[in-house]
Amino acid sequence: MRTAMAALVAAVAVGGCTVQAPQGDGKGPVRIELPEDSSALSASPRADDGKPGAAPTKAAPEVLLAPGDRGRDVRELQARLRQVAWIFEGPTGTYDEATEEAVKGFQGKRGLPRTGETDTVTWRRLLRMTHEPGRWELYLMGGQPAAAPDPRCLTGRVLCISKSSRTLRWMVDGRTVTTAAVRFGSEYTPTREGVFRVYWKSRHHVSTLYDSPMPYAMFFSGGQAVHYSADFAARGYGGASHGCVNVRDEAVIAELFQEVRDGDKVVVYW
């Protein structure tokens, strides 16, 4: 039965030593002991024909994470895979096809079954080869926990955008519907702070000033808009906008573009 790593893989026994792993719930480490060899033989007293002395059979290692899973544990897996050059983007926190292929590659290189799922044997091998990722490694491509919403975001329909956590919340009547990682303008072209309104939406917009695409643009202050950025998706925080609020997840911004209406509030705060 699959178990969340935040609860299961807080400490792994390796060669008699205990390796600490971070916790996602902030409650401190939970100590568990995995078998020294999770593929250890599970002896059966009888063969299928009922005769004693049957050869033992191998128990399948427990699956910890698998394609489709999301969350902080997936983010740690991706960060560790990035350390050993099996994945080159993210972490994103979503166990997607790229993560599955990276796990398969890591497993095949070490003679493990290429399942693409992260089981106890795969996880232990990865732990031995990597260090515990810090906050920057975990959130290298964005997606850090969203800051508490500004009080001005708690009523109505609001794009609530925090510069400190570099996140956007789409909120309706005080309830967070969607969150997304965002980046802002540079020191020389800063994103304005304050309370604004969406005054124009342009699905296939191209900047006339910079001759650059701004898909799913939702303008809120002059030429500044919330929009998808392929550059942000590829480079993360290695770049900056010209004042716009860049979103790196195209699926998220496409959904937001459908939901947000002209006149909806935009709050940009630190």
Rank of each mutant, 00 (worst) to 15 (best):
M1Q: 08
R2D: 14
A4D: 15
A4G: 14
L8V: 07
G15A: 09
G16L: 11
C17F: 04
T18L: 14
Q23F: 01
D25N: 11
G26I: 09
R31T: 13
I32F: 10
I32P: 06
L34G: 10
P35K: 11
E36W: 05
S39T: 10
A40D: 06
A40G: 07
S42L: 12
S42W: 11
P45G: 08
A55Q: 14
T57A: 14
K58T: 14
A59C: 05
A60N: 10
E62H: 12
V63G: 05
R70T: 15
R72C: 06
R72N: 13
R75T: 09
A79I: 04
L81R: 12
L81W: 11
R82A: 15
Q83L: 13
E89K: 07
P91W: 04
Y95P: 00
D96T: 07
D96K: 07
E97A: 12
A98V: 00
T99W: 03
K104E: 01
R110L: 03
L112Y: 05
T115C: 12
E117C: 01
E117Q: 02
W123Q: 08
R125P: 03
L126H: 00
L127E: 15
R128V: 14
T130G: 03
G134K: 10
E137G: 02
G142L: 08
G143H: 08
G143I: 04
A146W: 00
A148N: 07
R152D: 13
G156C: 07
V158L: 05
L159H: 03
I161Q: 08
T167Q: 12
R169T: 13
M171T: 04
V172T: 12
V172R: 14
D173I: 10
G174H: 06
G174K: 05
T178G: 02
T179M: 15
G185K: 07
S186I: 10
E187Q: 11
Y188S: 09
T189K: 13
T189G: 12
R197P: 09
V198A: 02
Y199T: 03
K201M: 14
R203T: 14
H205G: 09
S207W: 08
T208V: 09
Y210N: 04
D211S: 13
S212W: 01
P213A: 11
P215L: 00
F220A: 02
S221C: 02
G222W: 09
G223M: 00
V226Q: 08
Y228I: 00
D231R: 11
D231L: 10
F232H: 02
A233H: 01
G236Q: 06
G239S: 04
A240M: 01
S241Q: 10
S241H: 07
G243R: 04
C244I: 01
R248W: 03
V252W: 09
A254H: 11
L256P: 00
Q258E: 15
E259N: 14
R261P: 12
D264M: 01
D264W: 02
V267T: 03
V268S: 01
